[in-house]
Design a protein around this nucleic acid. Sequence first.
DNA 1: ATGGTGGCGACGCCA
Length: 259
Amino acid sequence: MKIATWNVNSLTARLQHVLDWLIANPVDLLCLQELKMTDDKFPLEVLKSAGYEAAVFGQKTYNGVALLSLHPMQDVHRNIGGFADEHSRVIAATVDAPGGPLRVVNGYFVNGQAPGSDKFAYKMRWLDALRDWLRAELAAHPRLVLLGDFNITPEDRDSFDPVGLKETIHHTTEERQHFQALLDLGLVDSFRLFDQPEKSFSWWDYRMLGYQKNRGLRIDHILVSEPLVAEVQACTIDRVPRKWEKPSDHAPVVLELRR
DNA sequence: ATGGTGGCGACGCCA
């Protein structure tokens, strides 16, 4: 069972990349962020031809998330429960995985622009609401995966310049406390269950030759609930599509589960 | 070097 997350920065612009990547990496479940399209524009039929059924929560111009699955999905939920969000940022579903039903929560977390800004305050409120809702989700679904673009570097080693970027967006103490609060619910950062290369990142700025210089951040994460930890076989970042022409600024992250 | 790249949708917003 393989589960991947990928912020594609417009599915319109990146559909061919997604299809090409799925042919090379036929994961059971692909969780997308930043579709930047409404539901009626979503390429359902093309993806169905590729073998994937989809659950979509789109939005015009910004945001938008989707689940692409080889297996049936049930109980699809859009948005954070109990939080009136104007943005389409969360879609969850229960997937009929070979190893048993799996609750998957796919999020495009708020960027937050800069500490002190209105957008940062929204990020904090959003993370509060996510934590509160996830507590209930975990109680109802012990086998749960939370993944997506968190827009948070959990630790200094997840940034190319933790000193120069100290307490700037993606690096603030408040954001990292929120990440820790998610772990405290009983979630584990699957990437850190394994030895990983130093300077492992999942996002690189388009500007200033960010990718070529590996000036990146690890902000795309796959968290698993405690009952799943023993089933995790690998978690890797696939940098290959970041090298393609007109790439997304994010790379896919892939989780491998036993069975 | 005080910018820079990219997507969207119509010159600015967002990342």
